[in-house]
Design a protein around this nucleic acid. Structure first.
Lengths: 164, 164
DNA sequence: AACAGAAACTTTAGGCTTGAAGTTTCATGC
DNA sequence: GCATGAAACTTCAAGCCTAAAGTTTCTGTT
């Protein structure tokens, strides 16, 4: 937190670039705005068309890809949400008959979560339509622009590593 | 919405391009992931360093820019959140002495919300640090990349307009 | 075997978020 | 003037979300 005293006159590199910092802040705000706009539309349509929510859809999508089911902890790290959060969402999905919990062989702490047939069917019905929505919303991007955007977003991923 | 009948044999462009749709879905997922990663870091740091939350920060930022205060409805549309949501956040900010409500001249329905001196000071203290965080997190983007990203995000903004 | 610590979840308290319904006030047409 | 509808908020119920604390189970070490 205080290892920069020596950098005073030696390196005027990062410090003397307020333009880049301003530009990056603008990028962040724009990223946020774009994401929120898209998400708002998807959320609204999921609600109106399928009477469901985005978090539920995200969970179903993850489970649909996981043939053999997922552990709660795998789900929460994949979706980047907290453990306790997943507990609640799964509870409601179970109550609606879209998901089942299975206890894991040889580890009585863990739970495996899997789609029921109804869960599979419901998600399959939504998935194609959802993809169409995204395709429509991002219609402003041709294939080339999309590729460029992928690359830039890759570069924009935050540099983590100091996990402590 | 239907001015493309003539494009049948001439241009097999939009229709026969499932690749573009796949690419757009990938863009959306990447956009979401990047945004969530950045937001998670900012949220965590705001909590640890300033004992506050992102929604509160967003509200303070909006009010800081608004010299003369903002109406509740202006706030909610600016931040793209619901009316009722703003009510709750403002309530807590008022309780903490960062914000005051003033009744609007000539319209007893509306409320003007404004930062207190403490609100101004607290936000001013956070703003610079927050900008530094964003600058650090987006350090992978040089100024040129940032500019390109801005342009592409502009193109990626969802096409709305059918408001009904 | 027994203990310590880690792992996988759940629970809890509190805040965020939404859409819908409710209240008060304003604006407009008649 | 007065009624009707719109506007600006607030309230409400329900779900989402987090961090922190709690429970049970597993995995070493000694």
């Amino acid at each position: 937190m205080s290892d920069q005293e020596t950098a005073k006159a030696v390196e005027p590199l990062e410090i003397a670039k307020p333009d880049a910092a301003r530009q990056r802040l603008r990028v962040w705000l724009k990223l946020l705005k774009t994401q929120r706009q898209i998400e708002a539309v998807l959320r609204e349509r999921l609600r109106v068309e399928y009477n469901t929510t985005l978090p539920r859809f995200d969970v179903l999508a993850a489970l649909y890809r996981a043939e053999k089911g997922m552990k709660m902890s795998e789900l929460s790290s994949e979706l980047m949400v907290s453990n306790g959060n997943v507990t609640g969402i799964i509870e409601r999905l179970v109550a609606d008959g879209l998901v089942v919990r299975v206890s894991v062989e040889n580890d009585r702490r863990a739970m495996l979560v899997r789609l029921t047939r109804k869960g599979q069917e419901d998600f399959a019905a939504m998935a194609g339509v959802h993809r169409g929505w995204v395709d429509e919303l991002l219609g402003g991007l041709d294939e080339d622009a999309a590729r460029q955007l992928m690359a830039l977003l890759g570069a924009a991923e935050p540099k983590l590593g100091e996990t402590e």
